[in-house]
Design a protein around this nucleic acid. Structure first.
Lengths: 345, 345
DNA sequence: TTGTATGCGTTATCAT
DNA sequence: ATGATAACGCATACAA
């Protein structure tokens, strides 16, 4: 068989002269058999004469026949497709979550169709509009509030990534920012830091900032919003820019906590460019545990998250929803970060 | 509307007591209208009394009715699904290609279902077996030879990523390794290097090694296979291990070319651990142009590839195939890397 | 505004 | 070993 044969579409002429894809009927006619026999040949079932099978297959090849996945799906149940909505494929965090989703989905024999929302609420809704028609369940990161989600969901089960139970009534899997920051702040305070700033993400006040402020308070640190700078992007560049501003308003900080590792790395770069040694003059703590953190210099101390597991867990939640079971809530759906001490703090 | 209502499956009881998903028929019965009216209500068409519409929608909610995507697909043509097979989501190169594919697919209104083959030929075939049933076309990285691909493809159009025209008869988009290495080697030779090694990838001899050897020859360098070490993984760790071996067998090299940026970064780390300064004692050249390369120290000089464009191009090839046109061949489907000089070489 | 009839492409069941 | 027939769930043209 020449591969070329596969490449260009042969098709069947309609009475009106236009062309359409060949169906099982066309193949049956050409091979001079019934549709059922074609089905047997194509699907490699037994109960068919090898000679006729060959003849049918030849006809199928001639017409470039491919079974319609829709017609198949109609009659054979059980094909499950999950939609996965990711905010930013360029941030190494998300491909790793996606890998976990793919892995768990594959084990269950599910397919997953992917959508990059690029941190845009309009694109988020587009994703839901499309996927609610094409998927049996949706997993993803969404900024939109519950009502908006519900409106674009059309009743399709949804599992939210990284939303607290107080923030949504949908099923969710998340990260225990409070548990993470308890470790992280203890580490910084234990090293003698009292003036600690934060580089927050684009969405502004969220669980990570809240946990940061909470721990600062618990540790008796002099922290208010002036110790926090917003980053316009969840990227190294965003962290660099944010750190510029933070150092302008609070030049006296001795440590900084980054919303994520990318931002933290940006912070380190700006700090060093402005003549501060890391960690001696300024300690930097990240959040995520990207492998990137091991490669920079100094290596990034960070609150590590098991991103693959997060993805697998999301698939498990979908399975529960589909089975009519209660989704996991609380600690079971709530991953605690683990402090990984390297050299930046 | 409470979001909770959406979460757990209501269903319809069969005569035999088992449960099945509600169909448009069930909704029609419950609402006391025809199926057509249900269709109008659910799909938000006009020509329906607001009161009956509300009644129908309520019935649909009660039964947790969702239209079957298969039945829909049967009757409305035009839904296109592409399969995307990626070898390793943990390598930042591939998410970026995927982003390009997603972007271009979305513009065309296509969906893409993703599969991570984890560099495993058996999983590669599994991917084809599944996707050839569920997708209208497949894009991806495959190690298997044409015959194997064709056997598992069942006639579905395929666009290969990074395979030379001499290596496949399928449509493909690729990278012009020769053009890249011409620039790269000229840069190294221009800096006075004569003893240049290479850290090759897991698959062994391929276009990048071939181009490397070719350029070495053109520049009159003393290079044979002893100047090349294989890396067991396309990762930083793989590069570190490979570099150990290369420095053992060829301690006299003054420069090294890495199969990709991850391996090159690993090479830098091993070189420095063994007391060589980069780039003074040993220059390092990468291939891919990951943003990671800007973050390490020294920053990685590399042959940069427009990975997003690669992905978009692959989708364009699929479109051509589907339209019955000739796929792009040669330079148009063949991206040339661009030398980005930073500080590692 | 609403209902009836038909077809979409496939597989399963049951016959021959 | 092969064929006839009946679903599968939906949307669309057309009739009322």
């Amino acid at each position: 068989m020449r591969a070329d044969d596969q490449q260009w579409e042969t098709s069947v002429e309609r009475p009106d002269g236009t062309r359409r894809r060949a169906t099982i009927h066309d193949v049956a006619k050409l091979a001079g058999v019934s549709r059922q026999t074609v089905s047997r040949a194509v699907n490699d079932k037994g109960e068919i004469d090898p000679a006729t099978k060959e003849r049918v297959l030849e006809a199928a090849r001639l017409l470039d026949y491919r079974p319609s996945r829709f017609a198949r799906g109609m009659v054979q149940k059980g094909a499950v497709t999950a939609g996965l909505v990711i905010p930013d494929l360029m941030n190494p965090f998300f491909p790793e979550v996606a890998a976990g989703v793919l892995e768990a989905a594959e084990q269950r024999g599910w397919q997953v169709v992917m959508w990059d929302s690029r941190i845009d609420e309009a694109r988020e809704r587009d994703a839901l509009d499309v996927l609610s028609h094409q998927a049996d369940a949706i997993i993803g990161y969404f900024k939109s509030p519950d009502e908006v989600l519900a409106r674009h969901l059309g009743g399709v089960p949804l599992v939210l990534l990284e939303r607290g139970p107080q923030q949504t009534r949908f099923a969710a899997v998340g990260i225990d920012a409070a548990a993470g920051l308890e470790q992280g702040m203890a580490h910084l305070v234990g090293a003698g830091h009292r003036r600690i700033g934060m580089l927050d993400g684009v969405h502004g006040p969220g669980p990570r900032r809240q946990a940061f402020l909470e721990e600062a308070r618990r540790n008796g640190l002099p922290v208010d919003d002036s110790w926090i700078a917003l980053c316009a992007e969840h990227s190294v560049a965003g962290g660099e820019a944010g750190m510029e501003r933070l150092l302008d308003t609070r030049p006296d900080i001795t440590a900084v906590f980054g919303f994520n590792d990318l931002i933290a790395v940006g912070a380190m770069r700006t700090a060093r460019r402005r003549g501060r040694r890391v960690p001696d003059d300024l300690a930097v703590l990240g959040f995520d545990g990207l492998s990137l953190g091991e490669l920079v210099e100094p290596a990034l101390t960070t609150l590590h998250i098991d991103k693959r597991r997060l993805g697998r867990l999301a698939v498990e939640q979908v399975a529960r929803l589909r089975a009519g079971e209660e989704p996991l809530r609380g600690a079971d759906a709530w991953l605690a970060p683990e402090l990984v001490v390297r050299t930046s703090a």
